[in-house]
Design a protein around this nucleic acid. Sequence first.
DNA 1: GATCTATGTAGAT
DNA 2: TCTACCTAGATCG
Length: 271
Amino acid sequence: MPEGHTVHRLARLHQDRYGGSPVEVTSPQGRFSAGASKVDGRTLCGAQAHGKHLFHVYGPDAVVHVHLGLYGAFREHPLPVARPQGQVRMRMVGPTHWTDLRGPAACELLTDDEVATLRGRLGPDPLRADADPDRAFSRISRSRTPLAALLLDQSVVAGAGNVYRAEVLFRHGVHPMLPGRDLPRERWDAMWADLVALMADGVRAGRIDTVRPEHTPEATGRPPRVDRHGGEVYVYRRAGLPCLVCGTPVASTRLAGRNLYWCPTCQPERA
DNA sequence: GATCTATGTAGAT
DNA sequence: TCTACCTAGATCG
């Protein structure tokens, strides 16, 4: 399940597996047949990510753009290839491995201009060296919108999702409903630096871990979230369980259609 | 087997 | 604010 760290991890993997080699690209399901036929057999020049968007560059004006959405997933296997199972939007076959893409929100062939337009809509990505956190703060500092919503707005920060938003707010003691313009600059700088470090860890580990060693369920004797796969976290999907730091039951609500979690004690109303 | 849910987003209302 | 998209794993019966 994809936040930015997953997509950056995929970009690195695809670069390793397919970069510099001709790739057989097809769409067994058919919905990407036209795009696939334009890059089929060409050499993958590079794979990169911006936020939750993945780009496979086969040449000028030949960029496969993938957004996994909520359900999308890549699955990789060593050769030889097997018959497609289910709805495979895109299949890539390289020198050693093949990869199937299922259920993406987007899988399309873009020109360089279209890529530039898309990326122009995205805010700075904590996982990219070219990211400028000032751009995010200038949006945040002028907005009355709650920070919980700003952190999920991909034009403010690209790549953070529901887990990282809940966890970074917790780790900095910031109430999710705090209006953006009430967030002090120093607090934002610390949150950004933390996102950079947490998400880089996520790329390395392939999961989201945000809990400091002294606060783990093992160290505190407090319960982990029910579904443990995906990493150890402070508040995400721990509604009603005692906070790993203070023991207060973790609160949850729904904001703009997404589940939101926070600790009422560790994250007071004012920053 | 049916049902629910999800680390997401666009577009309609 | 709501719905559709579309897949898979978890949970229910």
